[in-house]
Structures are given as C-alpha cells and as structure tokens.
Design a protein around this nucleic acid. Structure first.
Length: 876
RNA sequence: GGGUGUUUAACUCAGUUGGUUCAGAGUGUUACCUUGACAGGGUAAAAGUCGGCGGUUCGAAUCCGCCAACACCCACCA
C-alpha cells in the first residue's frame, strides 16, 4: 500500500466512521460481559454543537472506547432534550419572522409548528457528534418527547401525586404585561435605572404618631397588607403588634417584626405587598398576611385599585403620588438607583405576579440521594470539591416548582371538571381521568368533554431527571432486560452548572423509582472559556465554530487540543493553538509510520545488540507507562493520561526507540526487527485509540489487512505485565550520558559526524546499554581507562566519571572553572545537610526515614566532592 | 448579599496524608542543526522570593488565620 507523505484527516474520518457504523461496533445488547454504560447528557434538540459539547462528548467517547477495548459491553446511549423554554422561544421567534403571533394560534396549531421545526433541525447536533467520532449506540437514540419517554414522565407525575408528593400552590412569577406571558428567570434582564425612593407616612391605630416607610413603587400601596420592621431596631420595636393604617385605601394592617429588614436602608421600615414582590411574598407567608392582587394581566390596575381602576401602573404611580402629597402623607422623595427587571423580548418592565403552580415535595425523597453522595459514598463526584456544593444544596432544598406556562413539553396530566380550580383529578390520560372523576364526584353523567386538561407543561428537568431510567424504559416496564442489565450506569460526564438541576435530581429519581443509584461516578468538566477567561457565548461571538475547527485541524486533533488542558472541574481557557499541537502530534505519528514502512527488509532473522537493547528497554518502558495510565484513568485524570501517551509516543518511541533502531542510509533491516516493531506500533495505537480514534484506525489497517472482527476499536486493550524497573534505571543512565555527550559537542562545536571516544575508570559492566550509548552518542568506542595525558573534558553522571579526549585544543582554565563551580556548590550543599543533621531538634523529631535520607545525601555529596577533586587533579 | 472554588515559569496546568540532589510537565521563547520519516522537525538552554501578610513546626507550595484579585452557583434588596 502506498503511503501518502501528507496526512489528510478529513478523508479518513468519513471513511472510518461509516466503516464503524456498517459493522455495528457501537451497538450493544445485553450479554454475558460486564456492562459499561454511559447515558449522554441530552443536548437541546434544536441546538448546534459548541465547544462545551465537544469537550464533554470527547471525554465520554474516551471512556467508552477504552472500556469497549477492555472487554466491557460498552453502551453509550445518545439522545436529545426537548428543552421547552429554549425551543419554544426559538419557535415563537421564527413564527414572528413569518408574521405569526403565538397568541393567535391554538395550542394544537402551535405544536404543529414546533414539531415541524424539531423535525427539520432536530438531530443536527447528533450528526455533528458523529463528526467528532462519538461511538454512541445510535440504534438507541432517544428524544424526551418520544411516546415512551412522554408516558414515563406522565406515569411518574401520577405516581408522585398519588403518593401525596405533588401539590398545587402558588408562586411568584415574572409576568410580562405586554406579551401577557410568564417569563423564565433566564428571560429577564436586569437593568440599573435611576428611580425615586418615596417616603410615605402611615398612621398608627390609636396613636397620634406616624410611621414612615420608603418605597420605589407607591402604586403597590393598594396591595399592602403589613408593615415590617427589624425587631432589633430600637426606633420601632415597640410598634410590633400594633396596627397601621394604609393611606388612600385606609386598610388596617399589622406591624410585624422580621430580621429580614435592613435597618440601614431607607427609613428602616418596610411596607409588605405579598402579591407583588418576591421577598414580600416570603414575608407574607411567614407572618400569615393577606395577599391582595391589584393588577390586571396587561399591567393596569384592577378593582382592588379603587379609584385608579383601569389606569396603567405607571400612570397610577403618578396619580397616587399626587394624592399622597395632597393628603400630606408624602414626606419626601429622593433619587435612587435600583435594578429593574425587563423582559428580554418586549423590554417592558416585568411585574412579579402570583400564579398557580404545581410543586413536588422534596424533603423526604432527597434523603437517599444525600446518603449516597455524602455518607456511604456509593456515588463519587469528580473532582470531590463539588461535594460541598452538593451538600449545601441538599441541605437548603426547597420544593420543586415543576410547572411551566408553556405549550412545548409534557402537559400536566391534571383534568378539571367544573369551574372550581380545586376540582380536578390526576390521571395518565383522559379516559382514566373520566373514571376517576366519576368516582370522585359520584356523577355518572360526566363526559370526557366536561374535562379540561391543565394548560401548563412540566419543567424540562422533570423529564431529564428520569433519563438514565427512561432510556431503558425502566419506568413503564421496570423488569425489562435492558434496565436490569445496564442500570445502574457507570459514569456520567457533565458540566458543574447543572449539578443541582440535573445530576442531583437524577440521583433522587433513581432511588425513588428504581431503588438504586443511577450511576457510580460523576465526572464534572469545566466550562470552556476563551483566552480572556470569558465564558463562550453567542452574544460575545467568541465561540469558535466547532465544525470549522474539525475541518481545519481534523477531529482527532481537536479532541487532543481540548483534552490537553481540561482537568476535571477546572475551567479551560480554550486556545486554538492547542488544536495545532494536536495536529502536529497526528503528523508526527503519521511520519513515524512512514519511516518504519519505508525500510527495506532483509531476510535475516537476527537482531543486533542495539536492536535487542532498544526492544528490551521499550517493552519495559511500555509496561511501566501502561501501569501509570491505568492509575490515571482510575483517578479520571484524563488529560494527564493523554500527556502520558503523548510522551510515550513522541519521546520514548520516536526520539529514542526509533533513533536507536534506525538503519544506516539505504541499509535494510531484518524481518525479525520489523515484526517486533510492528507489534510495538500496534500496541501504541491501542493506547492512543480512545483519544484519537480516526488516525489510529487508519494506521491499524495500513499495518496489515484486517478482517472486520479485527478492527482497532474492538481490539483488546494490552494487559499489564511485569517489568524490570532496574533496566529502566540503567537506560536512564545511558540517556543521561548521551545527553552529556551532546551537550559537550554543542559547547565545543564538534560536528555530529565526528566520532568520539568515551573513557571511564569504572568497569564497563556498569553500563548495561553501552552499544546504545555508542550509537546515539556518535562514539567510536568506550574505553576502560581515562588517559590523563590527553586533551579533553570531563563530565559526571550520577557517581560515574567520564572523559572525552578531544582533538580541538581546549581552554583548560575554563574547564577548571567549571569543575570548581560544581565543587563549591557541592560543598555548600553538604554543609547545609550537615547543619540539618547537627540540629538536635531535627534529629529528635524527624522520622527515621527522613534522617536516613539526609545521611545518604551527605554521603553522596562527599563522594561527589571526591570525584570532582580527582578531576581537578588532572589539570595540575 | 449568601455559598463554593481558584491564585505555582511568558501561557495552560501537575505537585497525591508537610520531609529524597535545592518545585515539575506541555506549549511558547532563545541558540545551534537541513540530502536519509517529520522545519508541522531535531539538539540544547534560559525562565518561578509557589497572590500578599502573619502563625504552627526541626522543616510549609502543602496545615491554620487575615487580606487581595478572579471565577462560578444561588438570591437579588424595599
């Protein structure tokens, strides 16, 4: 097979991905092997691949591919999320461009648009995952709105409702009076605005004194149901328990005490409007205050607004101020900066408004999830620093508001009969609902058409929290083969920003619905940021186009680039140069392959001494590296593992091993050597495959013709074997000597072609790799004795002294100075060690081991000093 | 405002219960090297008072306290 000199990544990527798919290497069905399962964090169905996905999914692919090679039944389940808020917003926007208003559509019409949008763009991101090499079992692809997935969510809702864990309540939501819709927190932007702080006097019942409050929104006075002061505030604490009279509407409201009130702010007195402020709502609930809603849905005042009924909230504000002033209740106003929440789309000021919602009681069901992570450690968070975040959340858990005022999603399975909102039943579908309603009311005349389903849908997380279960249909069918085999899964890889939203809730649901944890390890990646440390976002436009990067550098290289700097849980500053580094690495591997397979092969079946040494050393080095790699993987130090392989291949394999066995120009190598090198090369490819799947598969097939069952991606990961550490130390010594020789060559300007002689006084047996030293040092030979009469220079490695006779005349003074410098350093070092050993406190307190080490340091230093003195003798 | 982290070479990061020959890696930088896989390369070198101050200890990058800067999550102040 001809080997192109240039490596073209794009060509091989498509070829090998379709080869993998054709042979169904990624497909998994339960069998006798142990399972290794990962469920993908489902990306938004309408999303496009960004750097965060690339990082996240590269890590999952590395873990999956390695496990597959290690003999596990690897199953990576892909899929997408319907992402109600994001998707609905996109659809609304698109319709708007076409001149269609959401309000003008029926629910069914809108959903039709949403589905056609989903069918058009949905799954694009999954195709993009294929581009980066993700080895998912695509036959298992799931979407959170698929029929089975939908049913699972509904079943869970009904189940939790029947257990008494779901209840109806109300909650403050962000209301956009212009669009007349609820906004999620993400859709509200806060803007600093210059406003006014009004000081308003409230009379106190049965008293001539007044109490003055400060407010930015005087129109909400009409909804006031309390006055609050800090109980520690000596100015007001005596008033607690008394009643105040709200101006204009003359309502009698209690004066309450709560430490929430900041004594320093305004007058230290707070008016409480529970129906129109997030904090006031909390206070209102805590102190049992009345909730009075004063607004219509369009932001005008309602009947509770009395004479202001029908006026817009901002006009009402001015009128009320005027009237307060007339009545003498407006003491003063001052300018005041505050943050105002605006609707992202309509830019109108949002109005906090009470709204009916569904809630899930959390207190009881979180218990096993707390234990699993914090007590029995059956679930590990990586890195473990996230445990404290997890703990904090779990201890401050609040009931989960699971309803959303949207159409795109799983519709709340509650059915109302009659006008009263409290008359409803919860059921899987309308026919079940009818049965329940008939039983509940005793009215056999009820028809399906008398029932109205709740218009809201469920929070997206209320479907994603079931993901590890529902992808295996474990909710509807808890005893099926898949769920029994694949669940619990092993690893979950995701970002720390959704540790609470998603990860914690999956743990909760796992225990609640299956009675088992959903996964054993959670690997939390960092956020991908740009070189300035900014989060990558569309608004900033600082996110590189992921697919462009792949085209430019190749998928393998981009994967390497991302992995090189991504320590678990630490944000990574993404620099395109890292992809370049990845590409250089790919090219290096490609060229090493070209070198080996360009050699002429002789029929000889022997190995030279250097070749034997090189193979022996590399075998040992490989085993030691493999051992290191296993540890790094156990600890999920994936970027370190990549660096380990990077160095094994670039340094050990290319720079040392290949240089050692490289034949002289145009000389052949023995067939025996080629066979050995081939095995070594194949094993290198195996270690590298999870990180760089495409180039490794390509080279694997170039080495020899393979049957389909011999593909690299399903080949066996090398088993760890014993290795000889001492030999590795001996080779390290040889390397140090070679480096010293190269240094002298450079210093003295000796060409690499010129053969040199190395002399030493020790027995040559101390050098186990002398032939290797001769080859890479460019030596003629190594001699047993140092000839002191010759011109040349000394160097020392460990405790050995070497001398190289040189033809060039040398400046002896310089040589002497160098040795003297080294000597004075050694003497200084010895002194500091001796000082330590003379310190009685050190000797008394330090562990024996440490003292031994110090003693050895002194001994070694003494030996070195002697050696240096001997070298100096030569010059005298 | 509450919480959680981070701060080590020009850059991105390691540094595992305080203790081996004076803190490591990759990239970058500098010098030299091109007919023999690869200039997308090779060989070598330089580069850090471990954020600041104080404490514990025979000994601190590592443990404790305070301060500073930055980041993320939560709540956003009448």
């Amino acid at each position: 097979m001809e080997i192109p000199s240039k490596f073209n990544s794009n060509q091989i990527e498509t070829r090998w991905y379709s080869y993998w798919l054709k042979n169904e290497y990624f497909k998994s069905v339960p069998d006798k092997r142990p399972p290794y399962t990962i469920v993908i964090p489902p990306p938004n169905v309408t999303g496009v691949l960004h750097m965060g996905h690339m990082l996240n999914n590269s890590i999952q692919d590395i873990l999956i591919r390695r496990s597959r090679m290690k003999g596990y039944n690897a199953c990576w389940v892909p899929g997408t999320d319907h992402a109600s808020i994001a998707t609905e917003a996109k659809v609304v926007e698109k319709l708007k461009e076409e001149g269609i208003n959401k309000q003008d559509l029926t629910r069914e019409e809108f959903l039709k648009h949403a589905w056609s949008w989903t069918n058009e763009y949905g799954g694009v991101i999954l195709e993009q995952l294929k581009k980066i090499g993700c080895s998912c079992d695509w036959s298992r692809t799931k979407f959170t709105l698929d029929k089975e997935m939908y049913e699972s969510v509904i079943n869970v809702f009904v189940d939790l409702y029947d257990k008494g864990l779901i209840y109806r309540g109300y909650r403050m939501v962000n209301w956009d009076p212009e669009a007349k819709t609820t906004l999620s927190d993400e859709e509200v932007i806060y803007e600093e605005r210059e406003g006014k702080l009004f000081h308003v006097a409230y009379s106190i019942q049965n008293s001539k004194s007044k109490i003055i409050i400060a407010t930015t929104r005087p129109e909400t006075i009409l909804g006031d149901t309390g006055i609050c002061v800090n109980p520690k505030d000596t100015r007001y604490k005596d008033l607690i328990g008394q009643k105040a009279i709200v101006p204009i509407c003359n309502r009698l409201v209690p004066i309450i005490g709560d430490s929430y009130v900041d004594m320093e702010f305004g007058t230290g007195c707070l008016k409480v409007t529970p129906a129109h402020d997030f904090n006031d709502k909390v206070l209102g609930e805590k102190h049992n205050l009345e909730f009075i809603d004063i607004f219509n849905s369009d932001g005008t005042l309602n009947h509770n607004g009395l004479i202001y009924n029908g006026l817009d909230r901002f006009i009402a504000r001015e009128k009320i101020c005027e009237d307060l002033n007339k009545n003498g209740n407006l003491i003063k106003f001052e300018s005041h900066k505050n943050k105002v929440g605006l609707s992202e789309r309509t830019k109108s000021v949002i109005e906090p408004r009470l709204s009916d919602q569904w809630f899930l009681k959390m207190e009881e069901i979180v218990k096993p999830a707390k234990v699993a992570v914090l007590e029995d450690h059956s679930i590990t968070l990586i890195p473990k620093k996230f445990k404290s975040t997890y703990r904090y959340w779990m201890q401050n858990i609040r009931d989960w508001n699971i309803s959303r005022q949207l159409w795109w999603g799983h519709r709340v399975p509650a059915y109302y009969y009659g006008e009263n909102k409290d008359n409803f039943v919860v059921a899987q579908n309308i026919s079940n609902a009818l049965k329940k309603a008939i039983i509940k009311t005793g009215n056999k005349q009820l028809k399906e058409s008398d029932l109205t389903q709740d218009p809201d849908v469920l929070d997206t997380w209320f479907s994603s929290w079931l993901w590890p279960i529902s992808v295996f249909d474990g909710i509807r069918n808890p005893e099926n083969e898949d769920i029994n085999y694949y669940y619990p899964t092993q690893d979950l890889v995701t970002g720390p920003d959704i540790l609470f939203f998603w990860v914690a809730r999956m743990i909760i649901s796992g225990f609640e619905f299956i009675g088992k944890k959903p996964f054993s390890n959670v690997y939390l990646t960092g956020l991908v940021r740009d070189m300035k440390g900014r989060k990558m976002s569309k608004q900033l436009g600082n996110s590189p186009d992921a697919l462009n990067l792949i085209n430019k550098y190749g998928a393998d290289s981009v994967r390497v680039g991302l992995m090189l700097s991504s320590v678990a849980g630490n944000d990574l500053l993404f620099d395109e140069n890292l992809c370049k580094q990845g590409k250089n690495f790919a090219i290096k591997i490609w060229n090493s392959f070209r070198l080996i397979f360009s050699w002429k092969i002789s029929k000889s079946n022997t190995l030279s001494k250097v070749e034997t040494q090189a193979i022996f050393w590399y075998e040992n080095k490989f085993q030691k590296t493999l051992e290191k790699l296993e540890i790094q993987f156990i600890k999920y130090r994936i970027s370190e593992a990549l660096m380990t392989i990077y160095k094994l291949i670039w340094e050990d394999f290319c720079s040392w091993f290949l240089e050692l066995i490289k034949p002289d120009y145009n000389k052949p190598v023995s067939s025996k050597l080629i066979k050995k090198v081939q095995i070594i090369f194949e094993r290198n490819l195996k270690l590298l495959h999870p990180f760089m799947p495409f180039i490794t598969e390509e080279l694997w097939h170039r080495i020899s013709t393979r049957r389909p069952d011999e593909a690299l991606c399903i080949s066996k990961w090398p088993e760890i074997q014993n290795y000889d550490n001492q030999s590795l130390e001996h080779f390290q010594l040889a390397k140090d000597i070679i480096v010293s020789i190269r240094k002298i060559r450079k210093e003295k300007g000796i060409e690499s072609k010129e053969k040199l002689i190395l002399q030493m006084n020790n027995d040559k047996k101390v050098l186990k790799f002398s032939e290797s030293i001769i080859k890479l040092g460019g030596l003629e030979k190594i001699e047993r004795n140092i000839d002191k009469t010759l011109n040349g220079c000394f160097f020392r490695v460990k405790k050995l002294e070497f001398f190289m006779p040189l033809k060039k005349s040398l400046d002896n003074k310089l040589e002497i100075k160098k040795i003297e410098d080294e000597l004075s350093y050694a003497i200084g070092f010895l002194k500091s060690v001796e000082k330590k050993l003379l310190n009685s406190k050190f000797v008394e307190n330090a562990p024996k081991k440490i003292i031994e080490i110090e003693k050895k340091k002194a001994l070694d230093a003494n030996e070195k000093i002697a050696l240096l003195r001997k070298s100096l003798d030569k010059f005298n």
